[in-house]
């Protein structure tokens, strides 16, 4: 054996433990924080992009940006007939229309016959339904799935995004957001 001198300064020796401690804290925080695992739109507070979607069904007109600037807040519902939660939220959408809320729909990657069947069985709450086969509007407003519901104010500015289906308990909150959008 060569010399008996201590090998390193005291601090360096504790570095690995310190790093592990930092890792541990980070992970604990990560595990126990109710993390938001959705990709939220970063486009809230910005005006709707320009679009002009053709009609998705025979009995409702298509959707353009200009038509959405009605001076009155409305909902933009991104949905599809092939999506189960979209059927789940249908009664809530119906309830919202009964309260006088106007809802526009964007049908994502959908076929007319599927859409007709879907609207026939779950009701049609939409004032207009635009056909978005290339997810252009979806990408344009930062939506990453179906269903998602956006609150659009009277000037066509996106005010709020609800990710996932609207559950009965969400309806008052949505109405509240619409009221906020009025100001």
């Amino acid at each position: 054996m060569s010399d008996q001198r201590p090998k390193r300064s005291g601090l360096a020796i504790w570095l690995p433990l310190a790093l592990f401690g930092a890792f541990f804290v980070l992970v604990i925080v990560g595990l126990y924080r109710p993390a938001d695992r959705e990709v939220a739109s970063a486009f809230i507070g910005k005006p709707l992009p320009q679009f002009n979607l053709p009609a998705a069904t025979a009995d409702r007109p298509g959707l353009t940006t200009a038509e959405m600037k009605t001076g009155k807040p409305r909902l933009l519902n991104v949905f599809a007939s092939w999506c189960v939660p979209c059927a789940v939220e249908a009664p809530q959408l119906a309830a919202l229309t009964q309260q006088g809320v106007e809802i526009d729909g964007v049908a994502i990657r959908d076929r007319k016959e599927d859409l007709d069947r879907f609207l026939a069985s779950y009701g049609n709450p939409f004032a207009r339904i635009g056909k978005d086969d290339l997810s252009e509007v979806q990408l344009g407003i930062g939506s990453s799935g179906v269903p998602e519901t956006f609150v659009i104010d009277g000037k066509g500015v996106i005010r709020y995004q609800h990710i996932g289906e609207i559950r009965p308990e969400d309806v008052p909150m949505i109405l509240e957001k619409l009221k906020e959008a009025q100001s």
């Binding site: 092939w82 189960v84 939660p85 179906v146 269903p147 990710i163 996932g164 289906e165």
Partner: peptide
């Protein structure tokens, strides 16, 4: 999985 946003496997 149904919670919401079932799109991942639907799509």
């Amino acid at each position: 999985p149904f919670h919401h946003h079932s799109q991942p496997f639907h799509r």
